Computed example of a mutant assay.
Amino acid sequence: MGNIRLKNIRVYAYHGCLAEEARIGSDYSVDLEIKTDLRKSSISDELSDTVDYVTLNKIVVEEMAIRSKLLEHVGHRIITRIFKELPEVSRIVLGVSKLNPPIGGDVEAVTIIMEEYRN
């Protein structure tokens, strides 16, 4: 087994409960870690024997482009889609951060972290 991590996937999106967040958007950062079997690809040196991180990045970017009020909701969509499209993934740890959130204070980011295992 092994892990593949994508750190600090940067996107601009329109998530949030406030009307202004839907209009003007905000910067987000996503961290993704998946567990999968890396033994075959470590021997074969073939992309077809592993989880392609280009596909993982594409899923994150596409799901982040769909507006949600809550970070938890977009996180759930990302996890569900990865499990659906990549059966070789057995565990996902996902962090979604809203940078400079409009919460009336000097806060760098608000982050939700979700961990799910394949059923």
Rank of each mutant, 00 (worst) to 15 (best):
R81F: 03
D49K: 08
R39A: 13
E85G: 00
D37Y: 00
V30C: 01
G25H: 06
R39T: 13
D106Y: 13
D31A: 05
V54L: 12
S41F: 00
D106L: 14
V74A: 09
M114P: 00
T55W: 02
D27S: 11
L18W: 10
S48A: 14
E85L: 13
E88F: 02
L70D: 02
G25T: 02
R91K: 14
F83C: 04
R5D: 11
D49I: 06
L70A: 10
I4L: 12
E46I: 01
N8L: 09
K35I: 00
S26D: 11
V74D: 06
L18S: 09
E21I: 05
E85W: 03
V96G: 05
L18E: 13
R81H: 06
L32Q: 09
S42V: 00
T50C: 08
V54G: 13
K84Y: 10
D31V: 01
K98L: 08
V11S: 04
L32S: 09
P102L: 09
R67N: 05
A13L: 03
P87C: 03
G105Q: 08
Y12M: 01
M114Y: 01
V11G: 01
L56N: 09
D45Y: 03
T36A: 11
R118A: 08
K69R: 14
C17K: 10
I82L: 14
P87S: 14
H76I: 04
E108T: 11
K69S: 14
S68R: 15
L18I: 02
M1Q: 01
A109E: 15
L99A: 01
G2A: 04
E46S: 12
G104R: 10
G75C: 05
R81P: 03
G104M: 09
K98Y: 07
V51C: 01
E116T: 07
I78K: 08
R10T: 10
I59Y: 07
L99Y: 03
E63D: 12
